[in-house]
Design a protein around this nucleic acid. Structure first.
Lengths: 198, 198
DNA sequence: TTGACTCGTAAGTGATTACTTGCTAAGTTA
DNA sequence: TAACTTAGCAAGTAATCACTTACGAGTCAA
């Protein structure tokens, strides 16, 4: 029976939640499995979070504090647009790789949660990601880097599929995905789509 | 108490399963909700499928028989590659719009199911989609339509994100997505990425 | 030393899960 | 019409769900 301060256990629980979602899916996330993974009894979990829902909300807090702030600062920087877009994609993908359950949690809860606070916060994260991507693309077009006949909205829609493409890759090919180069390979295609028609 | 032949009820049940997955997610698909939606008791469901698992397997049967066969025939046709790719995307997207729970079911079960038959069939569907897309792209490059410096694999990865981008759009913007033009808008960007660098 | 506080356990709680049982009436065939 | 099959119902089942309760043991300040 190992005792740890509540902040440490909370972090362990959040990590375990994401691990279970990543490996078994949200519908297999039970407090029993979670307790087993953390190495405590079910009762102990509720010492640190008042409900399962609160664990998920705490995870979103982390996404907003870490990922969204980074994305925001990249999108608002004054680097050239193509550099910004690449950096944006890298930060985005890196975070999803290091926090593997997030993609499914975000996507699944944004679409299907019957908890309106949870749902709206998930939707907000997705929507903000898209708006930031749009800003970069818009800047690149206005600044003459990219083709002015492009529709910003469409490029942003295409962009939003990319992080999930990575998840599909990892599922189809769990061993051999080159996550290092993933961003470069996708950025190369985005650049081709964005460049000016001469 | 309305009696219907088992084939009719089976189809009603499959539709109801997908409706629930689409609107509330796989983790909210219970036999209770399902029975309510179909308009029978829970017991009656098990007259037509021997388990909940069997309902999902029957849905995959449909995906393989209808969607995959159509995609196959489009990919193998002798039309120009850009026409084939557009048709491929249209057939793909059209099916997902008409069977709205499929995307989440495919994606979620392929990644997370602990049922190995279910999982491998879902993976097979995703993998086949990607392989067919690769064939079209490869043909277009070999035939001189598209740029020979492109990596087929990367374009196919990008392609696989597009149907899910549609889902994200529908979630972010449940009323106002122009699904009519979605394929055209995405195809336009794909064409830009694929065209030759002069 | 005592008393408060914190983090843990074991053993519950009622609700919900997928699924089964025993029965009945409608439809079909002999 | 009688016999059989099919598709429905109401009322169960054990298992699992998220969560609670009552209690104990370590830490630390007064």
């Amino acid at each position: 029976m190992e005792r740890k301060p509540t902040e440490v256990r909370q972090e362990e629980i959040r990590k375990a939640v994401l691990q279970i979602i990543d490996s078994e899916g949200l519908h297999n996330l039970s407090t029993r499995k979670l307790a087993e993974k953390v190495g405590v009894t079910e009762g102990a979990l509720f010492r640190h979070f008042k409900s399962k829902r609160d664990m998920l909300l705490s995870i979103i807090d982390g996404v907003e504090d870490v990922l969204m702030k980074s994305l925001q600062s990249v999108a608002m920087s004054d680097a050239p647009s193509s550099e910004r877009l690449f950096k944006f994609l890298c930060v985005h993908v890196q975070y999803l790789i290091e926090n593997k359950g997030i993609t499914m949690l975000l996507f699944s809860e944004a679409a299907h949660s019957n908890d309106s606070e949870l749902k709206s916060r998930m939707l907000n994260v997705l929507n903000t990601q898209k708006q930031l991507a749009k800003k970069i693309i818009q800047d690149g077009i206005a600044g003459g880097e990219w083709d002015s006949s492009l529709q910003v909205e469409n490029v942003a829609t295409l962009y939003m599929g990319i992080p999930i493409s990575l998840n599909i890759e990892l599922v189809l090919n769990p061993l051999g995905v080159n996550t290092e180069n993933f961003c470069k390979r996708m950025m190369c295609l985005l650049e081709r789509a964005l460049r000016k028609t001469k």
